[in-house]
Design a protein around this nucleic acid. Sequence first.
DNA 1: ACCTAAGCGAGACGGTACGTCTCGTCTTGCG
DNA 2: CGCAAGACGAGACGTACCGTCTCGCTTAGGT
Lengths: 197, 197, 197, 197
Amino acid sequence: MGETVENARRSIGARRNPDSADAIREAAEAVLLEKGYAGFSIEAVARRARAGKPTIYRWWPSKAALLLDVYQRQKRDIDYGGTDSVEEDMFRFLRSLFVQWRETPAGDIFRSLIAEAQSDPTAAAALADYARERREHRARIIERGIARGEVRSDVDPMLVADLLASYAWTHLITGRLDESDEAIRAAARLIARGIVV
Amino acid sequence: MGETVENARRSIGARRNPDSADAIREAAEAVLLEKGYAGFSIEAVARRARAGKPTIYRWWPSKAALLLDVYQRQKRDIDYGGTDSVEEDMFRFLRSLFVQWRETPAGDIFRSLIAEAQSDPTAAAALADYARERREHRARIIERGIARGEVRSDVDPMLVADLLASYAWTHLITGRLDESDEAIRAAARLIARGIVV
Amino acid sequence: MGETVENARRSIGARRNPDSADAIREAAEAVLLEKGYAGFSIEAVARRARAGKPTIYRWWPSKAALLLDVYQRQKRDIDYGGTDSVEEDMFRFLRSLFVQWRETPAGDIFRSLIAEAQSDPTAAAALADYARERREHRARIIERGIARGEVRSDVDPMLVADLLASYAWTHLITGRLDESDEAIRAAARLIARGIVV
Amino acid sequence: MGETVENARRSIGARRNPDSADAIREAAEAVLLEKGYAGFSIEAVARRARAGKPTIYRWWPSKAALLLDVYQRQKRDIDYGGTDSVEEDMFRFLRSLFVQWRETPAGDIFRSLIAEAQSDPTAAAALADYARERREHRARIIERGIARGEVRSDVDPMLVADLLASYAWTHLITGRLDESDEAIRAAARLIARGIVV
DNA sequence: ACCTAAGCGAGACGGTACGTCTCGTCTTGCG
DNA sequence: CGCAAGACGAGACGTACCGTCTCGCTTAGGT
């Protein structure tokens, strides 16, 4: 999986060199991990990847684009439950997300992306798109609940997805990913109570 | 309110000059408003306030400290309800916060503070402190509900406050402060249903 | 000679841009001339040259290096005589140096360099090197005198060169470059008498 | 003599407090010794002396004034010979000066004063005055030589004094105070040969 | 015995410069 | 034409001093 380039990468002609792109993504992730968002600069990534800065700018127009790319590359599947209980499904989703953010670089990367989005409109747009897509995806938990008659039919699945994500995001950006399973379950239960028939 | 200094501010002896402090706070707010978080630098604030950089660093150890100061100075009271319905109280709190963030500089300032906290640990600590204090304050809505028997006594008021704040924060940082009253009420109702007896 | 850059200088690739180097040298000289050593700062030079500070630091590690460069760029040839009389050769050397220091920026630049060397060890080293090289060069006047039998063979040419330079330097740093030809010749004659056979 | 102030110095009424003046002079000397000219700032002296900056500015209008004061306070007598040989007298003077500059703070202080004089006109004037006075003093060595018939009567004593001082100053400012007695004697002999009958 | 005047330590003030960092752009020379 | 390399103008970073200011205190000398 694209281990560190040893001697030197060169151009492979008039087209994008996938090795370079990978090296840059890996370097970005490594820098983010080691130095955090504060030390995450295009300079640092280029140095680390032994890549020229223009090569980065050529393919990722902004820091945000690189962050998003790295985040999606890094992200693994989330447990969306699939039990016959919305509470259980929501609990598993939240716990799974908390674990992933806590134990892989994904959390730091996503925090960086959120930070970047507060000043860079393109990052903001990308983040908004991504968030909507994820909400839609998570909304299926509720839709399934409605379908099997567990959840009231007048509940807006997107609103519930929004509440779930909000809870997770806010814990991420305030450094509270260390919530216990009980605490997470309590949140899931509270929301579940609000929506079951 | 913050009239332009005419000739020049000077030292007023071996103690802090409140005029300078005010001028700096005002300049910080103005820069943030005009240039956004991306253009918010100590240099820019100093230039705008006609203050020396060391004067800023003397009293605000970091950009975060200045941001927080400006935010608290800017913040006005929030409607915490006080009706005999937790749903109504929560709705009023959320709507009032959305309005304030949308229609005053407070929203942009708080977004900046959140962004800053993702890279600056002191900002993160300050933000966490502030958030906890606010949560405790908002939890009273629920405590009142429990006291009058409207809310189940096994509900954790801090968890509810957390959910409320999460909803608001996430809408702030994803640029969705334009939710309709109906949407906000739907969120409040959902949570309320989950906690009433 | 040093026309003003019109639109903007740019990078010309991964190598030094001679235009920038020249612009910086010219700006340094101009600043030194107009503001004197007290007003000679890297900031001021960068401003004047419309160059970034890092560009200056990249090529001149210290103020001293820039000063020395400017001095050598500015310096023109000195009359080292070449007559058949050491007295006449020494006189011409001294007079030529006094004239140059008095009538061109070289004098002020060299004074600055001496001042800088009193606090900056790298400047001190550079100045010591330069001084030694110049002494060796000037010592040839005496060596020629020894060769043609005019000067005693037990005279150390470097000592004589040292005395000559000392006389000039001291007059420079105490603002006594306005010595008459007679005064300069008297000094040359005194030293000559001490060394002829 | 002027031991470290223990508790605090205070005003002693509407007149200069000699204790403060002494403490400042001592602090100036100590700072110069420990940090060198580069670290010699009014701030540093004030800190060291536990004095207010205005107290320093009140009595010494410039860094140069303080330096000169400290130099004169520090300076001890020089051996002006008094033998019946100008060469011996000049040698003793030079050696004595080299030793003093090398082994006491005087050398560093004087270097600083010379540096300061290159940018500060008041320092330059003070230095020029001081130098002239010292030259006149040293010229007596030659005058005595003329009086006893050892030195040619057409020799200008001030020129000889100038050459002597120049040799010493230049060695001071180029860090060559470590000349051997032989080297110093060679210089004295060369000049002596040029002036004896 | 009171009052004024000036010196004192202290330290904040508006500034300028420091030397370093990163930004995003540019151009080269190789492949 | 892509690539590594790295220089470029720009400008922010946080720190050190600059020289000035005002404070609250102390003391001496004139009233």
